[in-house]
Design a protein around this nucleic acid. Structure first.
Length: 422
RNA sequence: GGAGAAAUGGCAGAGCGGUUGAAUGCGGCAGUCUUGAAAACUGUUUUAGUGUAAGCUAACGGGGGUUCGAAUCCCUCUUUCUCCGCCA
């Protein structure tokens, strides 16, 4: 969530930046400011009351010690009265506070300066393109036909075991998954990331920490018995490692990478665009996460882009990078770049990575701070990106590299695969 | 899953109803000494809210209660440890 400090000190700027999402948030911000003010007024009142009570309690203690029971009893009565008043104030304060928090949770992150105004994906800016249109055979097939033809991914079987969107990877298909995961992890480690293997079920606090809750409640699989959520991305457990943590300034930036399966309910999706690997309920992803000094976060965002670019180039997939417009960005993000791989047979772009800077939006909820040289605690910036998500990479690899006689896989994967084509 | 014990500052560890934000030790930081370092000595060392500031308020796993007053007593939840059981 946005910090109250920012909302208070840069009110107009925040409103202007939020407007880039295509929704006017001025009223929300004003409401937050009003709530904040009355909350603080109430708090001052309560604290004055409590202070009086503390003084009184001390006096009573002293009176007892000196044996002055009568006077002590008189003060006791006074104290009881004070206590009741405090209780009342406390209730009112708690109410204001929960309203304020609620409101703060509802407001998305303010887009960065560079982000353009826009409401739809069509308004995203293409900032980079690489690769040539693949040359495909005349009868080029979409990946869902290729996976069936070579029997490497079985959607029907997954359907039987679990349901739609939970495919079974078989033979070379399964090995391709494993190869991609290892390739992505190794490249990240080479780039200086530290590998972690987090839990794939998280508690409610973690969901709030990275902003999935309460915003995307219905998007996560939820085990109600133990109140745990299946992660939609490794971002959630990995970033939450740093919840309630005060880092040393020299520890920054922290760079983590982790592979996890990801689970998304994708409520309401249907149609040709979600066919095959295009959209799944369970998929594999290698995620990079950085905890950064605020002064470096945009530089780091660029370096993360470079890393993903390198992966795409090695895989030899035609791709482009979009800087998302305000309206297409996720709730918690201040700036997001999407990578889209070209799907030769479907003749469309598929989102394969999303790299974002959240600035202090997540850190504020997470209470992840660093201690400055003069001993002050400041919120860090958090960033993350897919490097990479597997299904659509597999879709593009299969489609773009198909020939009459088989599918040739890129050289960078050969050592991991133990074969070179399907 | 059953029985028992416990949860205090960066760590270790006192305190078990009266001012305690918390002894002591270690660690960290600053200084003295030293050519430098070590040792020794001195000082300092939680976080959040509020206020220009002095200050005030809150926090001893979380929540609730008793009391004029709670780290200290009670209830509850969570977690950890020990023993037993089960188990990849």
């Amino acid at each position: 969530m946005l910090t109250l400090t920012a909302i208070r000190n840069q009110t107009d700027e925040i409103i202007a930046r939020l407007a880039k999402r295509g929704v006017d948030r001025a009223a929300d911000i004003q409401q937050i400011l009003a709530l904040d003010e009355s909350k603080r007024a109430k708090q001052t009142l309560l604290e004055q009351n409590l202070a009086k009570g503390n003084v009184l309690a001390k006096e009573i203690g002293d009176l007892f010690k000196s044996g002055n029971k009568a006077e002590a009893d008189a003060k006791k009565a006074e104290s009881v009265e004070l206590k009741e008043a405090s209780k009342q104030l406390e209730t009112e304060l708690a109410e204001l506070d929960s309203k304020l928090t609620q409101k703060l949770y509802e407001v998305p992150n303010a887009p960065a300066e560079k982000v353009v105004f826009g409401k739809t994906p069509e308004e995203n800016e293409t900032v980079y393109e690489w690769g040539a249109e693949p040359v495909l055979p005349a009868n080029a097939k979409p990946h869902w036909e290729l996976t069936a033809q070579y029997d490497i991914i079985d959607f029907e079987l997954g359907n039987k075991i679990t349901g739609a969107g939970f495919p079974v990877y078989k033979g070379k298909g399964a090995r391709l998954q494993r190869a991609l995961i290892n390739f992505f992890l190794d490249e990240a480690i080479k780039a200086g990331y530290y590998e972690v293997q987090p839990p794939i079920l998280v508690n409610e606090a973690s969901g709030y920490g990275t902003g999935q809750l309460p915003d995307k409640e219905g998007q996560m699989y939820h085990d109600k018995t133990d109140n745990l959520y299946l992660i939609p991305t490794a971002e959630v457990p990995i970033t939450n490692i740093y919840r309630d943590v005060i880092l040393k300034e020299e520890e920054l930036p922290i760079r983590n990478v982790g592979y996890t399966p990801c689970f998304r309910r994708e409520a309401g999706s249907y149609g040709a665009h979600v066919r095959g690997l295009n959209r799944l309920h369970q998929f594999d992803k290698v995620e990079i996460v950085q905890i950064a000094h605020p002064s470096q976060s945009y530089e780091i965002l660029e370096s993360m882009l470079e890393h993903v670019k390198m992966l795409m180039t090695k895989l030899g997939l035609k791709f482009r990078i979009l800087r998302l417009c305000g309206g297409d960005m996720g709730f918690a993000s201040a700036m997001t770049y999407d990578f889209e791989a070209w799907s030769g047979a479907q003749q469309r772009w598929l989102e394969v990575s999303s790299v974002s800077n959240f600035e202090t939006f997540q850190a504020n909820r997470l209470k992840c701070r660093y201690k400055t040289k003069d001993g002050k605690n400041e919120l860090v910036h958090t960033l993350n990106g897919s490097a990479l998500a597997l299904p659509r990479i597999v879709a593009s690899l299969l489609e773009n590299n198909q020939t009459e006689t088989g599918i040739n896989l890129p050289e960078c994967l050969h050592p991991y695969l133990g074969f070179t084509s399907i």
